[in-house]
């Protein structure tokens, strides 16, 4: 697929704003504003990670769902709820755990424990 847009990439643009918040804004503010600045920095870092990893993650997730004959996450959820996948309990649980880990790799990688 060809890129229409000129550099910087979306990821680089978000990164530039996050760096500005970190170096220029954060040290100058305090209290509630400092807290909200930190939240903003964390949100932008999350977006950067999603821009880097998201596309491949989505492809893998769709492929993983298809392996359980599910065309969507909603379908998998439904099948777990109704017990339709009970015979593959362990496999389903492993797949779901791995997909949660993938979400955390974007949302908050520090949250993951060493297994």
């Amino acid at each position: 697929m060809s890129e229409l847009h000129d550099p910087p990439t979306a990821q680089q643009l978000v990164e530039s704003v996050r760096e500005w918040l970190e170096t220029d804004v954060f040290p100058q503010v305090e209290g509630r504003l400092q807290f909200h600045t930190r939240v903003a920095m964390n949100v932008l870092a999350m977006v950067e990670r999603e821009l880097e990893l998201g596309e491949v993650q989505n492809e893998n997730y769709s492929a993983g769902l298809a392996a359980f004959q599910c065309s969507s996450e909603a379908e998998l959820a439904e099948q777990i709820r109704t017990g339709a996948l009970l015979s593959q309990d362990a496999e389903v649980e492993e797949f779901v755990m791995n997909s949660v880990i993938e979400k955390l790799r974007v949302a908050n990688p520090k949250y993951l424990r060493d297994e």
Partner: peptide, 23 residues
């Protein structure tokens, strides 16, 4: 609020903890 928006991405922390505890 961006703070509230960001909490939506904390849901998976709880999915992770629940699955770990169950395991």
């Amino acid at each position: 609020s961006h703070e509230l928006a960001a909490i939506g991405r904390r849901v998976c922390e709880n999915e992770y903890d629940a699955l770990l505890a169950i395991r």
